[in-house]
Design a protein around this nucleic acid. Structure first.
Lengths: 156, 156
DNA sequence: AATGAAAGCTCTTAGAC
DNA sequence: GTCTAAGAGCTTTCATT
C-alpha cells in the first residue's frame, strides 16, 4: 500500500478522479477492472490514478463501515465536554484512551469537545462518563436516529 | 457484491471474525490472500467469512476515507439544530438535501439535531445556515482539531 | 467449517504513442 | 498521461476431510 507523501492541501482533481472517488466510496473493494469500466479508462491508468490519490493524501484510507449493533453497541450518544480549568489536556487524553469514544472534535465555543460514544447499555453511560466528570462538565444527548449517515461531501 | 439479508442485531463473532474486521478497517482493499495470512486461514475460508459478514449486515459497506481539504473543504462545523414548532420534518428534509451536511443525528434533549457541516470558507457558513434558520434555531461550533478521528469501537 | 489444487480472472509491468 | 499485451498473482470453485 502506497502511503501519503504530501499533506494534501491543494489537489487538482479532474472529472475522472471525482468519478473514481465516488465509485470507491460506494464500494472500496471493487476490482480495478470494474472501476476502469465505470470511469472509461484502461485498468493500468485507473490503478495509477488510485495510487496517485493515495500518495497525494486525497484518499486517507480504505476502510469498512461496521454496524455497531452487530458488535453489541445498542446505543450511541453525543457528548459535549467542557473541561474544568487546567484540565484540558488531561481530559483530551482520557477521551483518547477510552475506545468507546469513537470520534472527538475540539471546537470553538463553551464546550471544548464534542464526542461520539458507543454504548452496550444505558448503564454503561455513567460508567464511562465517570472517568470524565472528575475533570469536566458533560452534556449528553442520546441518538434516536441518524437522518444523514456519514456521506461524501459534494465532489463538484 | 453480496447484500445485507438480515438487520443484524445478534451476530456471533469469533476471534477470527474480529481479526478480519480489524484488518479490513485498516485497509479494506488488501487482497483476500493477505487477509488469510493475517488471520491464519486459507483464502477460500477467509473469502467466505467476509461474504458472511456482509450478508449478516455486520459489514455495512467498504468505503474510502477522503481528506476534506483535498476537496477544498478547509473548515468543518458542528451545528446543533432546534426546529421551531411544527418545523421538525421540514428541517430534517432541508438538512438531508444540503450535501455539505455530511452527517446528522436526531437526538434527545433540547437540540433535536446534531450535524457535521463541511465548508469551503467561513462565508459559506451563513449561506448554508440561512436555509435552516428560517425554520430552526442553530448553534454552531467550528472544529479546531480532531483528537479522535472516526475509529472502530472495541471489538472485544 | 476448513482445506488444497486447478481453472479463470485480475493486476501489474513493460514498451510504445 | 494513456494504451495494449503478456506474465505474475489472486480469487473462486469443487472435491475432500
Amino acid at each position: 500500500m502506497t502511503k501519503r507523501l504530501v499533506p494534501a492541501t491543494p489537489a487538482t482533481l479532474d472529472e475522472t478522479d471525482r468519478a473514481l472517488l465516488a465509485a470507491l466510496a460506494a464500494d472500496a473493494r471493487q476490482p480495478v477492472s470494474e472501476l476502469a469500466r465505470r470511469v472509461g479508462l484502461s485498468a493500468p491508468s485507473t490503478a495509477e490514478r488510485v495510487r496517485r490519490l493515495e500518495a497525494q493524501g486525497v484518499i486517507e484510507r480504505f476502510t469498512v463501515q461496521i454496524d455497531p449493533r452487530a458488535l453489541g453497541f445498542t446505543l450511541q450518544a453525543i457528548v459535549r465536554v467542557k473541561p474544568l480549568p487546567g484540565q484540558l489536556h488531561l481530559v483530551e487524553d482520557v477521551i483518547r484512551r477510552i475506545p468507546e469514544f469513537v470520534e472527538c472534535d475540539k471546537v470553538t465555543g463553551d464546550d471544548c469537545f464534542i464526542c461520539r460514544l458507543y454504548l452496550h447499555s444505558i448503564e454503561q453511560l455513567d460508567e464511562i462518563l465517570s472517568k470524565v466528570t472528575e475533570r469536566a462538565e458533560t452534556s449528553t444527548a442520546i441518538v434516536k436516529s441518524t437522518p444523514v449517515a456519514r456521506r461524501l461531501p459534494p465532489l463538484g
